[in-house]
Design a protein around this nucleic acid. Sequence first.
DNA 1: CTGAAAGCGCTAACAT
DNA 2: ATGTTAGCGCTTTCAG
Lengths: 355, 355
Amino acid sequence: MTREVPTPRGTTDRRRERVTIRAVAARAGVSAMTVSNVINRAGRASPATVAAVRAAVEELGYVPNVVARRLARARATTVGVLYAGERTPFLDAILVGALRATNARGLQLVLYHEEQLSLDAAEGAVLSLARSGADALLLVPPFAELLCDSAVLAELALPVAAIATDQVAPGMSTVRIDNRAAMADLTALVVARGYRRIALVAGRRDYSVSAARIAGFQDALAAHGLPSEAGLIVEGGFDVASGEAAARRLLARDVRPDAIMCSCDDMAAGVIAEAHRRGLRLPHDLAVTGFDDTMVAARMWPSLTTVYQPAEEMAFRATEQLIGAGDGDLVANDLIVAHTIVERESTASLRAVIT
Amino acid sequence: MTREVPTPRGTTDRRRERVTIRAVAARAGVSAMTVSNVINRAGRASPATVAAVRAAVEELGYVPNVVARRLARARATTVGVLYAGERTPFLDAILVGALRATNARGLQLVLYHEEQLSLDAAEGAVLSLARSGADALLLVPPFAELLCDSAVLAELALPVAAIATDQVAPGMSTVRIDNRAAMADLTALVVARGYRRIALVAGRRDYSVSAARIAGFQDALAAHGLPSEAGLIVEGGFDVASGEAAARRLLARDVRPDAIMCSCDDMAAGVIAEAHRRGLRLPHDLAVTGFDDTMVAARMWPSLTTVYQPAEEMAFRATEQLIGAGDGDLVANDLIVAHTIVERESTASLRAVIT
DNA sequence: CTGAAAGCGCTAACAT
DNA sequence: ATGTTAGCGCTTTCAG
């Protein structure tokens, strides 16, 4: 219990008096502008002043007020994220990555959830995002596909970045992995573990990554001299239920596949559930793989062999690219980041399991 | 391809000219101040002016600039979230909830990740959060426990809210479920499904919810006349690995439990993995339950019976409470939200499974 | 009930 | 190399 003393310091004591740029300026014996220069532009002040200002900043514990900064600056200050569908672990990772990036620069992140997947709806979403202050856009699949030719979006002339897509469009930055190569790598692993009748639960057709992954799958089969049977590729909807449905179809075949690869972890969860339900012993009777390496991959059993797509990192990079676009030239560029094959228990080699 | 015409409108065309409050004022034939009044304070303007302003806002598509608003206002404008440990589905849900709440009011959300779980570290984190502009704090477990008696935090005099905790402290708002009742309800369900030797993988001791859940577990056992055997309660660390470890201990006992309840979904995932590994048939040989109903619960097999703790909603509410605390009186209050028992396959009744 | 003045904290653009 | 002036868009007094 501290004694109730009439507040001695300052006028109102309402909040701990913020240290402003003027306080620093006074302390360092320079003008506010000089402090600003020291902080923001390198080599605009003499070494002596820089030192003095730095010292003052240190002593006072000054941290620039991001709000004031944003108001004064002309550059982009709020990034809008446009996404659709249910929240998934993959999406959450993206949101957190974008949030970290905006946090780092004191910018605002605005979420917009649009359920409809039509061009009209997407354009409406973009418009209201722009209206509520977004001056840069981060697109989550499948909005890059939807908006790549949008006149409305072009008219707005905002920097736009799309993530986890295979749709590269002019005027739109992209941050993605090489989906085709990733799926080929993963398929090669499954083959190496001894599986031969390999099925694929592909993603939705309107997501550009889906086709790339199918191509990678077929690349690898061909490379290993395995036949690519049309019936062993079925289309899913990227969710658990569609994985279960696909597994039901695949496992009802006369000759069952001995491995089912999936275009996302959630569908793999569905496949695994269905396999368990039918009493199959995993991974001996059936290997399963996912894609993305979301948080669920290591939490199911058998733990899931999958491709790590660094969603959070990708969102972070894309957001930084968006932010950077404010001052520099806003060239759209296409960044391909590394993926990683993560081998877990769901593809344990046939031999190893028998042992 | 649109023709390249010298931009006719405005000076620079740099950005789509923002509609400012002054534009609206001009359109409505009033002063900027009146527009502000119409928007922010009810009943401060005559019905006629209100109508005129509303019309002007509508026609121009005016949306207030949140940055300018925040700079001008005195109230809380940036909420800091203090969290620790690995990112989990539960934590992500909290972050998204908080983000939605700040978005709704045009405020900033700042994340701070502190790995150390000591009072000193926590106070340091709070301080640097405050320094970087946070004027309200959202505490994720176990920071409420850590900081409830902190003099540093008290000195700062910021509104603070803690979420998903059982630690209610004066001067700190809380949003939580009734953990004891929730665990009792869930235990009652397990008993009702025919399981009798029920074990519990409790949470870490330094999280206040852990004790409450143990109490609820014991309440229910007592209510049903079942003995509470000390050896059947083991402490876990809220992660998958600790769930596996706990399952190893529990399943190695002479008389195996027929159900293992866990204080979070992740530990349940670990228990399920270990049970599968030992060749147990789930849920017949062993029922498992989780807690939280995170996104993994429905993605494992058997799908997990658990308690839905509305993490996103709780974070949203807590953040709103924090924001509201800015203008009104900052009374700390303790909000208990409803939990829901979610029954899935992991506790299918013994009879049903045998059929 | 309405509006004029002043300024939140910072940074362009221009002097000096 | 440094400082002056002006103003980002809004809201808080406090007068009319």
